[in-house]
Design a protein around this nucleic acid. Structure first.
Lengths: 232, 232
DNA sequence: AGGTGTCAACTAACATGCCAGTTGAAGGAG
DNA sequence: CTCCTTCAACTGGCATGTTAGTTGACACCT
């Protein structure tokens, strides 16, 4: 008897059934409800979700092409494990994209966009003060998502999210001991200031410095959670 | 009676059947055998490929998530049309990634890598001299792919390809009248020189200038091939 | 007891039957 | 003649039966 309530299913009213189970599985993987390495049994998922195998297969296929599940032909399919190398690659990509984006936003920003970023910053400060690390994490993600949105390039925003899925999963692991809210807050403030002053060069540097520190904090995780990482 | 020979199917021996039809369709879309806007009938594809609907559905699903086909629920699925806005977005992404990549490669390059790039450059010059624009185009793609490979980040190379699928399709349209081989050659040479001298700053600028010119050449296509572009 | 061959149970992959939503054209009303 | 309604044919989404390949364990041979 495994955990069977997945917190959602039919209330995700939107679109095709296949897309809904995709969302459910994806969320479960990203918030580590399905830990890396866990085997996903199609039959079990069908029973729990109350659907047939077709939409589940479709969902697993998509997740596979996103790298969130490894699917071994004719054998099994399991939640993909993390690897430090892959995290480094995603970090490189994320930095490349977000640095370019923040430079563009710094130049073209409107006052209304600046206001929205400021509002998010105050929210971050509030949550950090309350030691609500979960909420702080979400506000942090929103901060970056806002900048992506302000590029005016919806596809860029979507791609930036897709490209750092593994990073997002890894960051969940160091959530509990987030004693770093203050530093993060300062780094975000530096980025915001550069955007405010419409200074793309400084914005680039601030974003680069902010993102660059993440990978060094991720490295120790391989020892702390060996089962979550690829054996190589 | 439509064109029915797709030049390959079973000779792509690798992996699952679904993945093979995916490859076939993808290639057809990218080389404009399936022009943008063309409706893809599942039944017809099944007959032509000699497979059932499951692998075809799976393939179309993947292509949909890559943005190569638009799939209208309960109605039809057609090859996605181009849009100048989307091309601009991809251009932005591509520049962000490739500029970051070339800077890294410039710093870390080995002599062996430099040799392979040089060899590719000589091939480009040869093909340009012979006015073999098709071959030149492929060598051009290889040049960029080599740089991506030399980052040592296989996922980055893969992502760079995925992120500029629409661009690659659009470039097929301006292939016939490639009177620009000489300029392209010079720009590639500038990039190679910067890599040779291990000068990341110059490499960035050269790559940025090289990629930046593409979008301006793409803009007129919307008028020349109106049926290939989204009606908006 | 250690290594090996075989077999049974499980898995994903594929084929096919069924259903619901969409669309476009034809026919009737204004 | 134009617009609206209706309906039939076609589409993709879903369920389920079938097939082939992998795996792990048990028994058998050495």
């Amino acid at each position: 008897m495994v955990a069977d309530n997945l917190g959602m299913d039919i209330d995700s009213l939107d679109g095709p059934l296949g897309h809904r189970v995709y969302s459910v599985l994806r969320n479960g993987i990203l918030d580590l409800t399905f830990p890396p390495g866990m085997v996903l049994r199609k039959a079990a998922l069908c029973e729990q979700l109350g659907v047939s195998r077709s939409p589940v297969a479709e969902a697993l296929g998509k997740l596979s092409s996103e790298g969130l599940v490894d699917i071994i032909p004719q054998s099994a399919t399991r939640v993909s494990q993390l690897s430090l190398g892959e995290l480094r690659e995603e970090s490189f990509l994320r930095e490349a994209v977000e640095v370019a984006a923040v430079a563009k936003v710094a130049i073209e920003r409107t006052d209304e966009q600046l206001t929205r970023l400021s509002r998010n910053m105050r929210l971050q400060a509030l949550l950090a003060e309350d030691h609500d690390y979960q909420g702080f994490f979400e506000a942090d993600v929103d901060f970056h998502a806002l900048i992506m949105e302000f590029t005016g390039y919806p596809k860029v925003a979507a791609a930036a999210g897709q490209l750092s899925l593994q990073l997002r999963r890894a960051r969940m692991l160091l959530l509990p001991k987030e004693g770093r809210s203050d530093e993060t807050l300062q780094e975000h403030q530096a980025i915001l200031d550069a955007i405010r002053h419409q200074d793309p060069v400084t914005a680039r540097k601030a974003m680069s410095a902010h993102l660059g520190q993440l990978i060094t904090r991720l490295a120790p995780l391989e020892q702390q959670h060996p089962t979550y990482f690829r054996s190589t």
